[in-house]
Design a protein around this nucleic acid. Structure first.
Lengths: 157, 157
DNA sequence: CAATTTGTTCAGTATTGACTGAACGTAATA
DNA sequence: TATTACGTTCAGTCAATACTGAACAAATTG
């Protein structure tokens, strides 16, 4: 029988690999995995020792995750250390980032399409289609976000 | 006034950067950009010379893109070379890959959640939520795919 | 058959970027 | 004020991987 610690380890490493595959640093994913699995707040130092990484890495990755709204810093009275825990709905924040990137790509492509002279309508049409694709992605992600969270802004809930 | 060639160049490089940001090789994106912009079929050799990369790179990247259903090989009677053009709806294929990866992550997480002993219901719940998130992403992407393509399988179209 | 063309493979290179660890600033404590 | 604890920063290291280019097999042409 596999121990809980083994399962935990497996989960944390797995999330690390998944986030790496999504283009994020592996340590970011391991922080997320740890905080989701244990569901409590950990201090800066605990994160470093639990994940066996340098404090520099924790500093960089924790800041990025806070900035993206995935984890949050919480204070403990009488304790000078920084504590971190997973946000209420981290998934929303993650998807917002994906959506933003897609919209930016759509905007970039649309701008290039707009720069084409009028006699290049065929090309412009292909580029506009491409931009629409990215807009559709952004839209689909937004829908996923609504479904994954408590559907707080979904009238049909 | 910016020439069409300059715009073309800018577009191709831009798509290269976008795909790189999505975790794919930059050359793959440049091939896609070239084929979308010009909208015609190019030979293996033309791809290499137009993009100024080695034939080895074209071989590897073209094969991957064909395998993913983004571009396709077309034959020309009396010409031994391989010709490549963008697929009918490359976006569908790209999104299918994204969706599959999300579902795989959801399955992995769900399996780990299932391995937890019954007294870990809190943890299991958090993990199940996480798995649901990835399922929602897969679903949202599928919706995006339907919207971006000709909505061929959307009864409301 | 020799020469040429075409695409693949793979060993080597170059580059990117994650990660480390030491130096540093700051704040608390004695 | 000296010391300790904490988080940040940044120069340097290391690993992953995109890319090159030469060697190769197969097909074609003369």
């Amino acid at each position: 029988m596999e121990s809980i610690d083994d399962i935990r380890e497996r989960f944390i490493e797995m999330i690390g690999m998944v986030t790496q595959a999504e283009g994020m640093p592996r340590i970011s994913g391991r922080i997320i995995g740890l905080l989701i699995f244990d569901g409590c707040a950990y201090s800066f130092g605990e994160l470093a020792s639990q994940l066996q990484v340098s404090r520099g890495s924790i500093s960089t990755n924790a800041r990025m995750l806070v900035e993206r709204g995935v984890i949050e810093r919480v204070a403990r009275p009488g304790d000078r250390q920084d504590y971190y825990q997973i946000c209420e709905n981290p998934y929303d924040s993650i998807l917002r980032g994906v959506s933003e990137r897609a919209l930016r790509a759509a905007g970039d492509i649309g701008r290039i399409a707009g720069a084409l002279p009028p006699d290049q309508s065929q090309t412009r049409q292909r580029l506009d289609e491409y931009a629409d694709f990215y807009r559709a992605v952004a839209e689909g992600v937004k829908i996923a976000s609504q479904r994954a969270t408590g559907r707080s802004d979904d009238p049909a809930a």
